[in-house]
Design a protein around this nucleic acid. Structure first.
Lengths: 112, 112
DNA sequence: AGGTTATATGTAGGCAAACTACTTAACATC
DNA sequence: GATGTTAAGTAGTTTGCCTACATATAACCT
């Protein structure tokens, strides 16, 4: 997949991943791989800063915990994050509708 | 629409717009508005450089013509451009499938 | 006649978002 | 004890679209 295609959709992906319950960053990356059928393999350098961004924006909240000597920062959706996710899903439908209107199924008749 | 959402999909839009026949830049912008139901309103500073890029890449070809005293550069798909469009359509389907696998319809069951 | 709007093409520079590459650290396994 | 997996993070770069600007003709309005 063209790497830039995600632009502007990453937040939606992260929020949607947390919709099923809280997860830590590494688990989010694995969940994205699993749910996308292997198509998405986001590098940590993309995901961790993005989660911080979402936390600063108040859409997710995090807590540290230590599991087996390893540090985990576990993220969960806030209420604002839940609302943002709803908005992102709507925006996604509008986006795909617009693109598919153009991509269509092939050649297009001239304007009436 | 979030302006950055198009990232990585602009070429597909431009190629698809030319799939119905040759058009000049200004007409391409109008066609994109019409086909997207008004959702897409690309600035000239986005479209003209992108068309040049596609021409350099050999995916479109252009010719100057003068209509009513105005200069028009009319673009058409090359064979390589047609092939690229086919590839873009396939990539689009894969892209949306991946995102929708994640966005899903709501909460997701834990891994089996 | 003059002003505004629509048609038409283009350039220069900026900026945000994601990427690449790297670092750190504990534990598990070979 | 070396390699691999789990886990989190930063620094700096690239990319590619956007904003703002510049130019020019034609059409329309007053």
């Amino acid at each position: 997949m063209k790497s830039d295609a995600l632009r502007g959709h990453l937040d939606a992906l992260l929020l949607a991943t947390l919709d099923g319950g809280q997860l830590h960053g590494y688990a989010i990356i694995e969940a994205l791989q699993r749910r996308s059928g292997g198509a998405l393999d986001l590098p940590t350098g993309t995901v961790y800063p993005a989660l911080r961004r979402l936390e600063t924006a108040g859409l997710v909240a995090s807590e540290w915990s230590t599991v087996g000597g390893r540090q985990r920062r576990t993220y969960r959706l806030t209420k604002a994050g839940q609302r943002a996710l709803d908005a992102e899903r709507t925006a996604w439908r509008e986006f795909t509708a617009a693109i598919e209107g153009v991509l269509g199924g092939g050649p297009w008749p001239a304007q009436a």
